[in-house]
Nucleic acid binder design. Structure first.
Lengths: 113, 113
DNA sequence: ATGGTTCATCGTCGATAGACGATGAACCAA
DNA sequence: TTGGTTCATCGTCTATCGACGATGAACCAT
């Protein structure tokens, strides 16, 4: 699957699997909606997200877990509530990864950097 | 699933489903590897990609199809070959979508950096 | 025409995703 | 203690993903 960590020889690594994992976490509409919901309220408990999403509580909980495991959302237990908030730095990191990927794919030859 | 096209009320739309679809296309390591391979050679036929990827030809063909359907790769039949090349603009569009999402998710908090 | 490439598609198969309801733990209020 | 919340987890079910080999179409060669 991944014969070499560096395929195109541009001198820019880009951890393929890690990047793909981030994308996978963002590849479901509900999870993007959750991100927007979380950011709109700065932080939410699970129940608040459920109100916005028209999905069962267990389903939302699963999506939240996926986002947390992907490192895009921070989780803080708060009494019987659960605080979820966007990890802005991590999200910015994804943005940077995408930008790097795009740059790699547009720099069709010379090993810069 | 998607009760309103605009959830967080920031005035920034972001088509959730479309963005999620783009991410889904990028959510597999092989497809990212293919993108890097394509960009490294400017354009490839299917067989060239197969050489790089250690996957069956039919599998690679499927991945290429997914990328084409997602609008990230352009396809041009060329005799018995098939030319595949990265759609740089589309890829840049994904990058912009991510940036917009990040911005949306950070606007309610402090703009640290 | 014949044979060799290249590639997309089909059918299959196992694994995973994504949805749900049910359940139980942890917490609060009375 | 009792009862009501909130939430994570479990078990289940269906649908899709991702892999493969086989097949056939389209295209060179000779």
């Amino acid at each position: 699957m991944n014969p070499s960590p560096e395929l195109c020889g541009t001198g820019h690594p880009i951890d393929t699997r890690a990047v793909a994992a981030k994308f996978a976490a963002l590849s479901h509409p509900a999870r993007i909606e959750i991100l927007k919901c979380l950011s709109a309220s700065r932080s939410c408990c699970c129940g608040e997200v459920v109100e916005h999403l028209d999905l069962a509580q267990s389903t939302v909980s699963q999506h939240l877990k996926i986002l947390v495991e992907a490192g895009l959302v921070r989780f803080t237990p708060d009494r019987q509530r659960s605080r979820y908030e966007v990890d802005h730095e991590a999200l910015a990191g994804v943005s940077a990864s995408v930008a790097a990927l795009v740059e790699t794919c547009c720099r069709t030859a010379e090993p810069t950097s």
